[in-house]
Design a protein around this nucleic acid. Structure first.
Lengths: 226, 226
DNA sequence: ACAAAAGTGTTAGTGGTACACCCATGC
DNA sequence: GCATGGGTGTACCACTAACACTTTTGT
């Protein structure tokens, strides 16, 4: 274990392929959806769908690789990204050892598809069997989102710059599968002090216009628990 | 991006060395300590200390590699382990690209050292400069522990099978740097229903003997937040 | 007998939960 | 004018936080 750094053995140490996969989530009319792409024809999972992702280059970080692949494969940029988990099962990929650093990404609204590469937004509650261990990765991403809704402003990543309190509440209810009382919900989130009421209102719908809000501060903030 | 899987290019994809590092924490008399080992002589950080860790083999998972290195380098087995974060900065290791899947490990008591390889338990509040980006990894580990104390039974990993409520409280106070009221603390943790009072008491100290408890159920449990 | 930590209840305040009606708009 | 979601206040309950003394042991 000491003199393993000679030039000869060094090459053998480079046995693994490093990849990333992204669980990119968005809300589409009260349904949480994940972005999927078609597998390339020459893979061990023909016709199946996969998470967008790909290899990490020698001179880029995992996060940079995620951003690059999201842009190339799905035309998506500017998503809120956080590292999710690293999947290192030996048999993940039948072709050989591939370790994947998975990320969770959130997008305000579904900006569907691109030129040639087709993309799909699938309801996370009704997923088909995905290639590799990607069903497992999606589960982990959804779990993370559910957990973080409780104590952070992670919902920010799923909302446009300006939004109504009903839209925010709808995100919580749809993802957590739990209804909240409107008045109590408003009291609670406003008491956190992370929302700013804008003068404007959302008009154009067949009911009273709703006040618009935005999150103050960047990123997702964490609140006290104990 | 499509036909990259031919035999010729496949070799070039294996550019990275995959490693693991462990932030192994324990409590030593109200001080949170991390396990460090000496760097091997031929590394770019001579005389500095590092986290225990090492390469991931082609046919083992990251978690298996952590367990193997912990056993070999520090004689430690049976620690509670959870994946912490994957560090993929391009320049982490001056010798070349090394991506490290870091783990957080907890041990009940300090079982110090082994035969030849010396190990050190260092107060996490007063760490020297460590090799590589290991100071950053330790910080992330301590943050994770602090956060999880609030909503899980992660403290279980730092305690022996049987323990007193004062010992449990001391862990919370030492790690969170915050004192709790004894009566309120007891009420709260007992109300969670995850502790079982044993008949026995801890004797032999110059004061009234304390009731012994143990955690019910395995692993670390999560509690409701919202 | 003394030192040292263990164990135990009550109160006041705060935050959570449950609940029903009027408002502003588009059609 | 009617249908649709938007916006608001109060009362009760549960949990949290503050607080002091007696008990049991070892020396």
């Amino acid at each position: 274990m000491n003199k393993r750094n000679s030039q000869t053995t060094k090459k053998e140490l480079k046995f693994a392929i490093l990849a990333t996969d992204v669980v990119l989530l968005t809300m589409d009319k009260k349904v949480l959806k994940v972005l999927l792409v078609e597998t390339a024809a020459a893979t061990p999972f023909p016709k199946m769908k996969t998470l967008p992702g790909g290899l990490i280059s020698p001179n880029e970080t995992a996060e940079a690789a995620v951003e690059r692949h999201l842009a190339h494969k799905a035309g998506v940029s500017g998503a809120e990204l956080e590292q999710l988990y690293t999947f290192s099962s030996v048999k993940r990929d039948p072709r050989g050892r591939v370790v994947s650093v998975a990320y969770l990404g959130l997008r305000p609204t579904i900006s569907l598809g691109t030129k040639e590469r087709p993309v799909y937004w699938q309801d996370v509650r009704h997923l088909p069997r995905l290639a590799y261990d990607h069903n497992e990765i999606v589960s982990k991403g959804v779990e993370r989102l559910m957990a973080k809704l409780s104590y952070t402003t992670i919902a920010k990543g799923l909302l446009p710059e300006q939004f109504t309190l009903s839209e925010l509440q709808s995100i919580y209810e749809s993802i957590l599968h739990h209804e909240f009382d409107k008045r109590n919900f408003r009291k609670k989130v406003l008491a956190l002090g992370c929302l700013k009421k804008l003068g404007a209102k959302r008009r154009g719908e067949a009911h009273r216009p709703a006040d618009l809000y935005r999150f103050v501060g960047g990123g997702s903030q964490v609140f006290e628990i104990l």
